[in-house]
Nucleic acid binder design. Structure first.
Lengths: 221, 221
DNA sequence: ACCTGAACACCGTTCAAGT
DNA sequence: ACCTGAACACCGTTCAAGT
């Protein structure tokens, strides 16, 4: 065949197929050969569009981060920020959107959690959060730490289901070894509500704790 | 050589070598052949001690979790628990030990974050936390969620450095694209204090937020 | 510019063979 | 029981060759 008149592949098509493979069969199932087969081309064809598999993974990661809503940070001047009362609401809305985007693709979270690197969408996200917190009145050092701790919590909650981590087999939980886990085999059956409840409880607790600290901040000039 | 009079390998030696390889070169650098070479045996020898590479990884993970201190949950009857005032201190001490154990081996955290599975040390940890919270007066459903959200936060904070995720190259942060990230290239240089500060801020905020909820709990009989 | 097959140095795992 | 080499079906990546 050699070069076709209209290209068989594009970066977009490759990224979409890679994400689907990762979602359905895990990060280990993504091989360049397997992905190429999925796209009905031969293995080396991908190297016309991405220099390495890592570069492809980077594109997949940034496409996921691009789904996170950042509109709550773009408030009109004067409406928020100046008095600082709106930052907890913005942080709450953002955290929910951030978690939803990541939890839709848990198998890619370990890659994404390595930080923004040079990925545009990840840098835009960091810029929006930090900028909003500083404008709301948080000192820059504290704003950095809040950005970090929110990422810790969100990536941790999207990385894996807590409930599904406990085998549904009651035999596992020998009362002599684990006296308090007698009901743990039921967790996996309530996966959605346990994970969602834990995320919401943690998010509200974090925001309450941060609000206490914000109130203790020395008055700004 | 065939079978030597005294075995060349043991599960312990294999696990230790695997963890060192993962720490020094990453999860992808752990191959059965590479590990065997490191241990001066041939590749298939490992299969006399572990059925699969996954079983070996499980053992590595559980050895890391075994380093987490759980002694704060084993308080004497009456000294704590009954009045419930000691749970925030126990949770704080445990979270710090948990994070320290994981952050010493960040490359294995994605595996470990999948949940306890059938690993004894991971199940013991879950049992100790849940048991302590219930005895302190938390309803069982809430205790489950607190165990989950603490794991979210700790694994998220140990998975990767926040500060090191930002390239130290100032060229990355074009002011037109990222107006608030002008100083982000300095983050990696303060990696320790940023990550530690974010973890401590988040931990205290979480504990404060949870204490507010504990105070609102209906009185127990 | 964009695809192909052949090739290189790797993988995890099985298995028959040795002591 | 515990190690070995040979073998199988895989990897990521390079490269010369085709249009």
């Amino acid at each position: 065949m050699a070069r076709p008149r209209t290209p068989l592949l594009s970066r977009e098509r490759i990224v979409a197929a890679a994400l689907r493979l990762i979602d359905e069969e895990g990060l280990d199932a993504l091989s360049t050969r397997r992905l190429a087969t999925e796209l009905s081309v031969s293995g080396p064809s991908l190297y016309n569009h991405f220099a390495t598999k890592d570069e492809l993974l980077d594109a997949v990661v940034d496409s996921v981060i691009g789904e996170v809503d950042l509109s709550m940070f773009a408030t009109a001047e004067g409406e928020a920020g100046a008095d600082g009362t709106r930052w907890p609401e913005a942080l709450r809305d953002w955290a929910r959107s951030y978690r939803a985007a990541l939890a839709a693709h848990p198998n890619i979270v370990p890659v994404l959690a390595q930080g923004p690197g040079r990925r545009p969408n990840a840098l835009r996200l960091a810029d929006a959060v930090f900028g909003h917190l500083v404008e709301a009145g948080w000192p820059r050092g504290q704003a950095t730490r809040i950005g970090a701790l929110m990422r810790y919590f969100v990536t941790g909650s999207a990385l894996a289901s807590f409930a599904a981590g406990f085998p549904a087999d009651a035999e596992v939980y020998d009362a002599a070894d684990y006296p308090h886990l007698g009901e743990a085999h039921r967790l996996a059956g309530h996966r959605g509500s346990v994970d969602e409840g834990a995320f919401e409880t943690g998010l509200e607790a974090l925001l309450d704790g941060l609000a206490l600290r914000f109130a203790r901040l020395p008055a700004r000039s």
